[in-house]
Design a binder for these strands. Structure first.
Lengths: 119, 119
DNA sequence: GCATATACATAATAAACTTATGTATATTTG
DNA sequence: CAAATATACATAAGTTTATTATGTATATGC
């Protein structure tokens, strides 16, 4: 059957925050570019995060106290590492739970069956 | 555990077209208000479609040749019934398949397990 | 009779993303 | 070794898509 090269952005919209918070809750410290590459790798380029979407979100999360940052020099370049705060950890759990529930509701509404590969 | 009263609109964004096409592929003929009520009922108000989102989408689908319409008088009020065209049926299948694949990808990315209730 | 429900429609606004642009260093490859 | 690609940040302009508000009108329940 036909394999999507990449999901329509309309479908991905709104999941970015959930993805970022989940990755940060697993890996503790990540920098922006690393997040884009990890998502691309894990999803086999089916979900690609653009910089124009990611950086403003990370700045927003910092302003909200969800993450703290640490800037590190790597050679002559800089990296800005992001770490979840305590609030951020709770927020991550909430967003993940909400997404899982959302999928369950959509499965019912669209009459889909869960994929057995991960059972 | 805490049950969402309603999913964040940010999460629902982008799924509207998939929902509408799926419902129309099941029920053949539906009118706008009926779609809003069906979604509300099936999702126990966890997904609520607003008129300001639905009607412009239905008009767009009609303009694209995805649906045809038939206006019916019910008493002194009107109902505008929507029916999928052949193109619409294919579009519905595509969108459903894409959504199912998207969920699989998100399950991997977010390390979620499918809900066993529907197995 | 008044509130709520049914049933359509659209305009103004807001949110969130895409695309484009900008800066700069590091590495790979022909 | 020059050019292309990759790494790494940032932001502005424009688009899309939804929310909120408004508008019209009939039907029903209390």
């Amino acid at each position: 059957m036909y394999i999507c090269p990449m999901y329509s952005s309309e479908l991905i919209k709104g999941t970015l925050k959930t993805i970022v918070l989940k990755l940060l809750s697993e890996t503790k410290q990540m920098y922006g570019y690393e997040i884009t590459q990890k998502v691309k790798a894990v999803t086999e380029s089916k979900i690609v995060i653009t910089e124009g979407a990611l950086y403003p979100l990370l700045h927003q999360l910092e302003a909200e106290g969800v993450v703290t940052t640490e800037t590190v020099n790597v050679g002559k370049r800089i990296r800005k590492y992001y770490t979840l705060t305590q609030t951020g950890n709770e927020k991550a759990k909430e967003k993940l739970y909400e997404f899982a529930e959302f999928i369950n509701t959509m499965n019912i509404l669209l009459d889909l069956k869960p994929n057995m590969k991960y059972v």
